[in-house]
Amino acid sequence: MRLRLEGVRKFFGDFEALKGISFEVDHGELFFILGPSGCGKTTTLRVIAGFYIPDEGRVYFDDRDVTFTPPYKRNIGMVFQYYALWPHMTVYDNVAYGLKIRGLPEREIRERVRWALELVKLEEHAKKYPNQLSGGQQQRVALARALVVEPQILLLDEPLSNLDAKLRIEMREEIKRLQNRLKITTVYVTHDQMEALSMADRIAVMNDGLIMQIGTPVELYRKPRNRFVASFIGEINMFEGELVGREGDFAVVELDGNTVKGVPTAEIPHSRVAVAFRPEAASVVKEGGGGNVLEGEVESSMYYGSKETVFVKTDFGMVKVEMFNPRGRVARRGERVRVVFDPSDTIVLP
């Protein structure tokens, strides 16, 4: 099942929650919507589910227009942020409910519930009530309940945000494994960038009711097309500069007297630009070094064993550098140093 949104807008009173959202999700793809709270990601998910009807735009499942189809006719599976397990039903009844609605014979219901509970490794707990389960187990029941009806699209709304850190990482792998095995088109909403980067086939980054960029995790991390995406995903050093020319694929930018080169990731309409590079793409040296060079004074330096993190004070701001596998302390507080980074690891943003 392919999913397509075309120019979806949604108002709540005067507040425009979605300002024209379009994207397509391929069959079997694990698609993430990532963004800060209030950006419209949950609203988008609820439009896909059918709980909101957009004020403008269309929603298609394959080529079927489902914009006005109520949720219960969409054949979706949805996992809610707080799981929304029905407290008056056992685990078995929670999972079986969707099948009973569909009027399946009792025997088939039993088999499919067993299949779903085995899928999430909860076959032992069928007779328990939700309040007798741990957070992680409740999460699995919610997943089983959504999957048992063999939905065409699986929707997950911040499914891991209420679990502790360790369990969250375990569940990431589990969900990824299930999704891979069932090859079910999935839309997954989260504000956790690590979740998105580690699990997604593709990610849509949203902010303020708009999609800022859609791409694979590598594309978003390596080639962010705007400042929001660059700073929202991962850490980045970013400075304002003036575009002064081009050298092949590189843009040449004047940064307060320093000249640096970088790769433009989007159309650059004017000369005010931002130069950005990741902390781990740079290194600190005492002298020499090719490519882009910025000079400064070490503000602080912390040694973590696997890496050393150095903050360097330059004329135009603080630069963070992370050097992995350090053989000894690289920099000490107060030293004059040079921050060097490769032009191909540097991006220039409008």
């Binding site: 589910a49 709980f51 109520p70 949720p71 219960y72 006719k73 054949n75 979706i76 599976g77 949805m78 809610f80 942020q81 707080y82 929304a84 397990l85 029905w86 407290p87 008056h88 409910y97 969707g98 609605i101 569909r102 309940r145 959504a146 009806v149 929707l155």
Partner: peptide, 27 residues
Amino acid sequence: VHAAFEEAAQSVGAHPLRAVKDIVLPL
């Protein structure tokens, strides 16, 4: 009774009225 209880029922195919009968009323 959180609204998500009913939405969860609708998402697996229950008509809103059926969701009220099966989920809201018992609670």
